[in-house]
Amino acid sequence: MSLPLPAGEYRAYLFDCDGTIVDSMPLHYLAWQQALAEWGCEFPEDLFYAWGGRPVADIIVDLNERHGLAMPVAAVADRREELYRQFLPKLTAVPEVLEHIIGSHRRVPFAVVSGSTRDSVTASLGALGLLDKFDVLVCAGDYARAKPDPEAFLRAAELLGVAPQDCLVFEDTDMGIQAATAAGMASVRVPQPRMR
């Protein structure tokens, strides 16, 4: 199944990572379930997907509020990341997006714009041999306001030296599409693997 792109001459491609380049969402969910179980916290799958694209720390803070818990944010985040890395051998790329990465590499510059940490993004891309395809990584900690705020996408465009209106964003979440639109960028919606 190919992923049609909106018409236009784009000078840069900006990609979300999890669920867009890498089919990592089911693995992230397993890591969340195992990490949170250690604290007696539930994270329903529909909520996990609804919150796709949000920084890990924000999710833990909101889960604490919802469940009246006091999970230590950094410790839970680190544990979730440790568990996710154990699943990396099972990681695969999203085929429709990989096709565009391979076909357009070196023709236009690429950036990753992710709500995940730089360590998580580099581990995922490295596991698939794709890390060297990207000129810029904008990850959690590189911006103040998460998607749906456009800040992260605007930062990536600035780092690539490309005007926002000349960027095409690949995204799998509503918040990511909203952020791209707010940044004045065209976008293409990547169907989540479980929706294909």
Rank of each mutant, 00 (worst) to 15 (best):
L3G: 10
P6E: 00
Y10A: 00
D16Y: 02
D16N: 09
D16E: 04
C17S: 03
T20H: 12
I21H: 08
S24Q: 06
M25A: 09
P26N: 09
A31V: 01
A31H: 03
W32M: 02
Q33S: 10
Q33W: 10
A35W: 03
L36E: 00
L36T: 01
E38P: 06
W39G: 04
G40Q: 04
F43V: 06
P44V: 01
P44W: 05
L47H: 04
W51T: 01
A57R: 15
D58H: 11
D58C: 02
I59A: 03
I60S: 05
V61F: 00
G68A: 09
L69R: 15
A70R: 13
M71D: 07
V76H: 01
R80A: 14
E82F: 11
E82D: 13
L83G: 09
Y84T: 12
R85V: 09
R85I: 11
F87G: 12
L88M: 10
K90R: 15
L91H: 02
A93C: 05
V97A: 02
H100M: 13
H105A: 09
R106V: 13
V108P: 10
V108R: 15
V108A: 08
A111I: 05
G115C: 08
G115N: 03
G115L: 00
S116K: 03
S116N: 15
T117Y: 02
V121C: 00
T122I: 09
S124Y: 02
S124A: 13
S124M: 03
L125D: 04
A127R: 08
G129F: 02
L130N: 09
D132F: 05
D132A: 14
K133L: 07
K133C: 12
F134N: 12
D135C: 10
D135H: 10
V136N: 02
L137P: 07
